[in-house]
Design a protein around this nucleic acid. Structure first.
Ligand code: MN
Ligand code: MN
Ligand code: MN
Ligand code: MN
Lengths: 222, 222
DNA sequence: TTTATTTTTTAGATTTGTCTAAATTTTATT
DNA sequence: AATAAAATTTAGACAAATCTAAAAAATAAA
């Protein structure tokens, strides 16, 4: 058996899903813009997707994915993001050059292939751009963003933002080898002054004050 | 930029290349049969490939790939076989379940992707079915098949066939741990009786007679 | 609430790749 | 050489996906 839906239909489903996520609602023009096509072409496709029971659609009234359409869209997103992860982690591509290639790879139909790839990659939770990778049932783990005071002990996390942007805090963080992207975990929290002891791989533990901890934001899965 | 040629065109080029290899010449019916399509469809496509300067074609007289067509075909074959190798060696697929999936993967267009994949796989010389993998210039190393008498000294090779199929020789080979797929090299050739000393990895050397050597066929690259 | 603007849909073409049925050419048999 | 059979090509049609231009509906402005 070949693919269940054409690449074109899959691209429409994915685009509608994404726009739905961002705006809650989607318009014909949105989709045309997203897919670099014409509104008339979108209308044509909406009818086809409706006929295939992937979409709820009433002309002039709007449209949205139904359960089946959402399910299909999530599997394409899963494939897209797993391939991106593969390209970066195994083939040494930069995170900024994988999207185009994944746009093609996401349409390869074999389910077994993608599940094996997932396993081969160690079941990654997010792609090189930090976006969550749905599992084979279409579920994904949320990436939580918290400051270091609220990061659970022993939870590996990645620095994703700095609150205070002053030269002083940046100098301090630089000295302690903490930068955007640094992976670390909190080893101890001292109740006395709310200071925190951190561990970065291959480095000796460092301590930071509550004031600093409040201004370092990290993200982690689950 | 997307793919230079459609998947369909690439499939035609590949089919024509293969049939040309086997029979020296190709007919419309051959191609129709190979691609599970109709002769009329083949004729239609021949015209398009000719217009694209990938094929020499004169109606009713026959056709064959020109230099450019051959070049394109070889790159598709390269992709097909590298992906098959990836599926077997990295994703633990059986050699009998990868062809279908590679039929889709071979149409992914990125040249950088396939060159990186080649590197990631360690520049394999042949795919899981023993077929040679062309390099990025479309050249491949021939796999030579010889009997053990003619295998160059110290050339690693793989047992690919047994001439005499009698129970006696099979018992002898079995006792010396030589079977289809065994990788070995010739360490010494004795001029006195043309007997040969072999080395199989992790085993002590074994000697076989000229008579046996004549009946064991091996293949090796280059 | 008319009128104007924007959005969406329809009507009719176009491109690519495929098909069937019929015509043409080549090849094989009397 | 004439006829039969097989291979190949053409003619005309169709499905999928796209487009332009025009019509219809919804929304915003006056
Ligand atoms: Mn992407
Ligand atoms: Mn991504
Ligand atoms: Mn294959
Ligand atoms: Mn193969």
């Amino acid at each position: 058996m070949g693919p269940k839906y054409s690449s074109s239909r899959e691209n429409y489903l994915k685009a509608i899903f994404h726009l739905q996520e961002i705006h809650g609602t989607v318009t014909t023009n949105d989709v045309a813009n997203e897919l670099q096509t014409r509104p008339a072409s979108v209308t044509d496709m909406l009818k086809k997707l409706k006929a295939q029971k992937l979409l709820l659609y009433e002309k002039y009234k709007g449209f949205k994915l139904n359960t089946e359409g959402r399910k299909v869209a999530l599997q394409i997103i899963r494939k897209h993001r797993l391939w991106e992860y593969f390209l970066v982690e195994k083939l040494r591509f930069g995170w900024d050059e994988v999207h185009e290639i994944a746009e093609e790879l996401e349409h390869i139909s074999s389910k077994k292939l993608i599940d094996r790839l997932d396993e081969f990659l160690g079941f990654p939770k997010s792609d090189p751009h930090g976006d969550p990778i749905p599992d084979s049932q279409g579920r994904w783990t949320l990436t939580r963003q918290v400051d270091l005071l609220n990061l659970p002990i022993n939870q590996m996390a990645e620095v994703s933002g700095i609150g205070d942007q002053s030269a002083e805090i940046l100098e301090l963080l630089n000295h302690k080898h903490i930068a955007l992207g640094t992976r670390l975990e909190v080893k101890k929290k001292f109740a006395f002054d709310n200071s925190i002891e951190l561990k970065i791989k291959n480095q000796s533990p460092v301590t930071i004050s509550e004031h600093v901890a409040k201004n370092v934001f990290v993200k982690y899965d689950e």
